[in-house]
Structures are given as structure tokens and as C-alpha cells.
Computed example of a mutant assay.
Amino acid sequence: MVRHFSIKGKLVPVDWVCNLLKAKMNDVVQNEQINRFLIDGFPRNMSNLEGWTTYGFTNDIVTLKFVLFFDCSLEECERRCLQREDRRTDDNIDIIQKRFRTYLNETLPVLQYYEQTGLLRRIDANKSQDEVFEEVKELFR
């Protein structure tokens, strides 16, 4: 079902994402005795954030340490996407700019929310890969 939504270019309903995420996290905790997670790209919009809260991630399952934000200019994003060796089929100027607009409209309010809570950790991703990596390592120490 998730693949069906992806093929159609639609977002998977937030309750599905939250239930899948919760089930996988519980499974990993029980079977692998791992209780630390890095979740990439979620919550991506306010609906995701509401689901994150509604499905108990903020109290029952997760003690959120911080939200990591790689702050990068549109120009640098364009340059990197267009120059990477393993380019996606949708790596072109129009789609990259559309993704950036989506970020401004959908994701930025989530980041502002976490900034107000004091949980946002911002990395200047316009720097070199090595500099960014060093800053990220410091956050995880």
C-alpha cells in the first residue's frame, strides 16, 4: 500500500506512517535491544507533527533529544543535486525548486515549532562535507 501511494505521487497517510514507525521501533527495541533512533525526514509537515504527537511518540515511546536541520541555500542545493554522481531522475532545476518551495510551505513551520521548543539544532550545510560532518559528530557526542 505504501508503494501504491508513492507511485501515485501521493503522501502516505500520517496514521499509517506513525503506526509503521511505532511498530518498527518497538520491534527493534524488543529484538535488538537498541533504544536510540535517527529518523530522517519525519515529521515533514504539520500533519506529520500532529500524528507524531497523537500517536504517543512525544511521551510513550520517544524522548526526543533534538531535531537536526541541515540549513542549505537553494543555490547550493541545486548545485549539489545537479553534480552528484547518483542523480535521481527528478534532479532538474524545476523539480529542485519545487521541492524547495514545498520545504518553505510545509517543513519550515515544523522547524519553527521545534526552534520554539529549544530542540532544533541547525547545521550550516553550505559548508564543506567535512566541516558539516564534524559539526554533526559533535551533536551526537
Rank of each mutant, 00 (worst) to 15 (best):
R36P: 00
C72P: 00
N31I: 02
W52G: 01
I34F: 01
D90P: 12
D94N: 12
Y114V: 05
F5K: 01
T53V: 06
L11G: 06
Q33Y: 01
C18D: 02
F70L: 15
N92W: 00
L68F: 02
R121K: 15
R87K: 15
L74G: 03
K137V: 10
N105G: 10
V136E: 02
L20T: 07
N92D: 12
K24W: 00
R84S: 04
P43D: 11
T54S: 12
R79H: 11
F66E: 13
R88L: 14
N26V: 03
I34M: 11
L139W: 12
W52C: 02
P43S: 11
S128P: 05
N31G: 01
N48D: 14
G51K: 04
K10R: 14
E138M: 06
N48G: 13
M46A: 11
L108F: 03
L64D: 10
N45K: 07
E106I: 06
R122K: 15
N92T: 05
Q83A: 15
D90G: 08
F140K: 08
N35G: 06
K65R: 15
L20H: 08
Q33W: 01
M25C: 08
A125T: 06
A23C: 02
Q116M: 11
E115V: 07
Y55M: 00
K65P: 03
I34P: 00
V17Y: 01
R141M: 09
F37H: 09
L120W: 03
G9H: 11
E76S: 11
L108T: 15
G118D: 05
C77S: 13
S47K: 14
E115W: 01
Y55Q: 00
N19A: 11
D130N: 13
E50K: 14
E78C: 13
L111C: 09
R87S: 12
P13E: 01
L11V: 06
L49D: 04
S6I: 15
D40L: 07
L82C: 09
L20D: 10
T102V: 15
G41Y: 10
E135F: 02
P109L: 05
I123F: 05
D27M: 05
M1A: 13
G41R: 12
C77E: 04
K24T: 10
L104N: 13
E106M: 11
I7G: 00
L82R: 02
I96W: 00
F37Q: 06
L20A: 12
F69H: 14
M25T: 01
E138A: 12
F100W: 14
Q112V: 13
L49Q: 12
M25E: 04
E115K: 14
R87A: 14
F69A: 07
L119M: 13
V29H: 01
V67Q: 10
V62A: 15
R84L: 05
R101D: 14
L120G: 07
G51S: 09
P43F: 12
R122Q: 12
E32V: 00
H4G: 04
D40Q: 09
S73K: 09
W52N: 02
A23I: 01
F42Q: 06
D94R: 10
S128M: 04
V28Y: 00
T89N: 08
E75V: 13
R87F: 02
K127W: 00
P109G: 08
E50S: 13
F66C: 13
